[in-house]
Design a protein around this nucleic acid. Structure first.
Lengths: 192, 192
DNA sequence: CCTACCGATCGGTAGG
DNA sequence: CCTACCGATCGGTAGG
């Protein structure tokens, strides 16, 4: 499993798994060392602190989300429904391709220390605000209809972010199928 | 704040807050004692262990959800859309009235020890299965339309469960308004 | 990458 | 409800 990865990458993978399973406070550097077959102090040859492991995991994912925005802006799309569809598809891609890191991103960010803590919240806010701005635009163009764009945004993101709870990469439901179904649900609703 | 509560109830409230803020592993019995103005060992006059605090918080909420099912069955409702609406409203009521406990319920249940761990998962599954059964019934009666009732259920529950992340009891958005908007979104969709 | 080790903190107990 | 204290474990350092 680790054959082609250097120690630092191995360490990151182990940290993602352990932070997910035991939480930041509950996962010890000794746990990680054991998973790598080395002694705990040896970890510090590859990383400065437990906190650095956490922040690199969290900001990796945060950057994935922010690069979704950049890509969409570069694409030249201007129809709100098309843009929102692209966001949803890209977001689901990030979650399904980074399940462990997504779990850490969502559950353990609160253990980030300053200034990382504040920066993380700002990056997440930027993304949420962007998604909401697309929904607002859709409402103003009468393409979307909702009483409360903020609540609508949070509901959508909760659904997308919740995927890591149940997604199985070896299961029979692909990221594409998930996207298709969630798009249908949020665009057209459950009632017929 | 604590005037009318006995020590055990005070302790539960403090534990909910600290488990939410610092996680189960990160919140210490000494933290709780300090919040109550007593010494750590005194806590053990009211509770047998840290684990007992966690399990009582988690099962309290789990029982709230299961009692939603009981109430609906007692009500005699048989129209799937009406039942699903009742579930959504009751679910949002539980979350908004128990924000801290809901956060613990969702983030810290994995620290439950056996047999509580297994029992908790079963109770949560029972609830999810019930919600899905209502959606399935709606599909079979051509009231609802979805390709994947499981995914639809998980999406809805992710949205409902995500409310504790942002809900502010002193804010301007009431539980009733949240219910109304989420119902609209899930039943009718965003597109018009 | 290791051994040896640090001070701090943990959940919990004994005994009053 | 307290003081005094237990063994275990923590993140991390020194030095090689």
């Amino acid at each position: 499993m680790f054959n082609t990865l250097d120690r630092k990458d191995q360490l990151t993978i182990v940290a993602q798994q352990l932070f997910k399973d035991k939480g930041y406070a509950g996962a010890s550097m000794r746990d990680m060392a054991q998973n790598l077959g080395i002694e705990a102090p040896s970890i510090y040859n590859h990383v400065a602190s437990k906190q650095e492991l956490l922040s690199s995991i969290c900001f990796n994912i945060a950057n994935e989300y922010l690069s979704i925005i950049k890509q969409i802006k570069k694409s030249g799309y201007n129809h709100p429904a098309l843009i929102l569809q692209s966001i949803i598809e890209a977001h689901i891609k990030v979650v399904t391709e980074n399940i462990e890191a997504s779990a850490v991103f969502h559950n353990e960010w609160r253990f980030l220390e300053e200034p990382n803590y504040t920066q993380f919240i700002e990056m997440r806010s930027d993304y949420e605000d962007y998604v909401e701005s697309i929904i607002k635009e859709g409402v103003s163009k009468s393409i979307f209809k909702t009483n409360n764009t903020k609540l609508c945004t949070l509901s959508l993101l909760s659904t997308l972010n919740g995927i890591y709870h149940w997604y199985n990469p070896k299961g029979d439901l692909s990221a594409r199928e998930i996207s298709h179904n969630i798009l249908n649900l949020f665009f057209l609703g459950l009632k017929r």
